[in-house]
């Protein structure tokens, strides 16, 4: 419990710094008035809009307003459409998050299957095949594989729908593709970790105690190497979410990637800030979740190093 609170405070501190960086970075990206107003607009018009959007106030005051509003759950209104930022994000985010979670779960599943298979069949055919698949998965970018899959399975064979997110079937192609691409690197990491674990003293002693191969592999070796997969998962989920722009354009996916692109192009400060902040909150909570899972899995983290003798 103490551990969870400690991690929670850490997360809050991280979010605070993220908010500063977002706020400054957005403002460094250019002047939003340029894209909102006609180039021939008068200085008075500029000043009026600037005042309306709150851009005339000193930076520190603008930041204060941003943080206090955000703490109350208000991310402001979009400069371009005037609608509340949270509402716009609320429409687009679920599609992206559901897809990312699905891809991640598929990735973890494949990682466990392929990584374990490769480690158990070390240097045999199955291991070689996994190694080749991983190399392929890592060397083809997701969008390339995506375009080919869309062409082949969607356009030519018409097995899967190719654009939108209307039915569960729409999730299959992008979800599996993303999951596979991600698991290609994770499976190798798990394999190597598992191999090291299988040669460790405690696995040797487990075998010499007469434990059967199933206990040795799943109860002792795999559980010890799974923490690596868990750490990678948080990192990969972050990449999936923030990298959604590419995937979403290949699958014409109604998600947040497309929205971010538009917001950045229009220099829609509140919307960009909102999106990045929501990303940050998602990623920080996920890493919090993996930390807590780590602790649940590993007593050394749970009980802290101070008890070590």
């Amino acid at each position: 419990m103490k551990y969870a609170v400690k991690k929670l405070v850490q997360s809050a501190v991280i979010l605070f710094f993220v908010s500063i960086v977002i706020f400054l970075a957005v403002r460094a990206s250019g002047d939003p008035l340029q894209s909102l107003l006609d180039p021939r607009a008068s200085d008075a018009q500029r000043a009026a809009l600037s005042a309306k959007l709150g851009l005339d106030k000193p930076l520190i005051v603008q930041y204060g307003i941003f943080v206090f509003d955000a703490l109350r759950g208000d991310l402001g209104n979009s400069h371009s459409s005037g609608r509340p930022v949270l509402e716009i994000i609320g429409e687009k985010l679920p599609g992206t998050v559901v897809l990312s979670i699905m891809a991640l779960l598929i990735a973890i599943l494949f990682t466990l299957l392929l990584g374990t298979l490769a480690a158990v069949k070390k240097n045999r055919a199955a291991d070689r095949i996994v190694a080749v698949l991983s190399a392929l998965g890592q060397s083809f970018p997701v969008f390339f594989v995506g375009i080919i899959a869309v062409q082949l399975l969607g356009v030519k064979l018409r097995i899967f729908p190719i654009s939108g997110a209307d039915t569960p079937l729409h999730y299959v192609l992008p979800g599996v593709l993303l999951g596979l691409c991600v698991s290609s690197s994770m499976a190798l990491v798990l394999r190597n970790n598992l191999l090291a674990e299988l040669e460790s003293d405690h696995v040797k002693f487990a075998r010499l105690r007469g434990l059967n191969e199933r206990s040795v592999l799943f109860r002792h070796a795999l559980r010890n190497s799974f923490s690596t997969v868990l750490s990678l998962s948080a990192f990969i989920f972050a990449n999936l979410i923030t990298g959604s722009i590419v995937i979403e354009s290949v699958f014409a996916w109604p998600g947040i990637g497309e929205l971010s692109y538009q917001a950045i192009m229009k220099r829609d400060f509140p919307l960009v800030q909102g999106i990045v902040l929501i990303f940050a909150i998602l990623i920080v909570s996920l890493s919090l979740l993996t930390d807590i899972l780590h602790a649940a899995l590993d007593p050394r983290i749970r009980l802290g190093k101070e008890e070590m003798q």
């Binding site: 003293d201 405690h202 007469g210």
Partner: peptide
């Protein structure tokens, strides 16, 4: 062999510090 190892012939390993699984009591 599974019964022989541990059941009939047991081992006291060289390094006790690393011979137990760290995740179990």
């Amino acid at each position: 062999l599974l019964h022989y190892n541990g059941g009939r012939v047991a081992v006291i390993p060289q390094d006790p510090m690393t011979s137990l699984d760290p995740l179990f009591t």
